[in-house]
Design a protein around this nucleic acid. Sequence first.
RNA 1: GGGUAGGUGGCCGAGUGGAAAUGGCAGCAGACUGUAAAUCUGCCGGCGUUAGCCUACGGAGGUUCGAAUCCUCCCCUGCCCA
Length: 402
Amino acid sequence: MKELERQLEIIKRNTVEVIEESELRKKLERSISTGKPLRVKYGIDPTSPEIHLGHMVLIRKLRHFQLLGHKVFFLIGDFTARIGDPTGRNETRPILSREEIKKNLNTYVEQVSKVLDVDKAEFVYNGNWLSILSIEEFIKIASCFTIAQILERDDFSARYKSGKAIYFHEFMYPLFQGYDSVVLESDIEIGATEQKFNLLAGRTLQEFFGQEKQVVITMPILVGTDGKMKMSKSYKNHIPVSTTPEDMFGKIMSIQDTLMESYTKLLTDIDIEKFKIQIEKNPRQAKAILAKEIVGQFFSSQDAEKAEMSFNRIFKEKQIPEDIPVIEIPFSKIGQKKVNIVDLLFLAGFVPSKSEAKRLIQQNAVRVDGKTITDINTEIEAEGKVFKVGKRKFAKIKIVQL
RNA sequence: GGGUAGGUGGCCGAGUGGAAAUGGCAGCAGACUGUAAAUCUGCCGGCGUUAGCCUACGGAGGUUCGAAUCCUCCCCUGCCCA
């Protein structure tokens, strides 16, 4: 059956594991012959309103499922977010309030829509069923697992061994995620490799509830801009989706060369074998192509072009960017024409404190209209001047009457 | 409930009466570059007329000229016992 092989090839691309492939075949066969789409589940915690490229690896996979005609269930873990999945962490997460979660939810769909066909996907919230789950039902669920099994999980055992606290509610997280699969009757659940345990919990519970087990597909973890840890906002090594084309372009340009291959594979449709040669020949140029390709996905190819031009302008030709943000400062805050440079940097929001401003000046990091400021006692007339603070902070100051 | 070891700056982790608190990591800036890596240098609580002042070692009190360090009470975590 040609269609089956075609689908399998696309689905399996870039995956780390498919558990079990034979089951996936069976499901696909059935889907093709009956015309009934498979139910594909992907869940995220709305703990942070920012989706970054790391999420996009999974969302691209979902998009492929959509293109193959399957049904995507985008699960928003509004309930489980309040527990906080301890995955990949060595510490307990703070519990989020309902308000915080709600706030985060709103921005999700929009960000995802850049890659996923959101009209065809179904967005579901696990709070709808988990918040009314009876204790009785919960005990049933809990009886499917042993403590040793859960403790087996890598991060739990690491914490346990190093003498750190593991709280009971964290222990239950995989159970809830698994139960979500039961409610959704999912055929397939995808997640990053670190999610494997949680994904497998779904299989256990579906079997217990007399359902066909979901196929678990794990994807590689995207490494963040630091080149070491997984991309995550809390490690500050992430590339957010909701940013400017210029910023995204620049951030991709700053990744380590060794990451280029995985970024290409996981975030673009570029033919990796051909691209590898290019990476070797001219890494800097290859990275620019990669950056343009990724930026183009989230914005337009024109935006990507512009981002590249602006990037070259600033960093290759060492000029100031074309579009410089304007920072308005009310005249009342200054009270006179000339201002001390330290106060100004602080008022304009370039730095979090005046001490920081002084440090930067002493380190030759501050330029006004191209001239480096070296004295912290400098008094300047700021109106209309272009400030450069550090490598990449540019702004024009405008004094406004208020 | 009993015993025991602990809680130090974003993180790890020294320090046991007189230092805004040794290190390391992360971060920031400068040099070099391809806003890559590596390397080197400097910075890395806040305010300041640059003398100094304020805030900080789980929390609250206390002893002392002086406390992260000593005492009391409280909160939290690990481990062992029940």
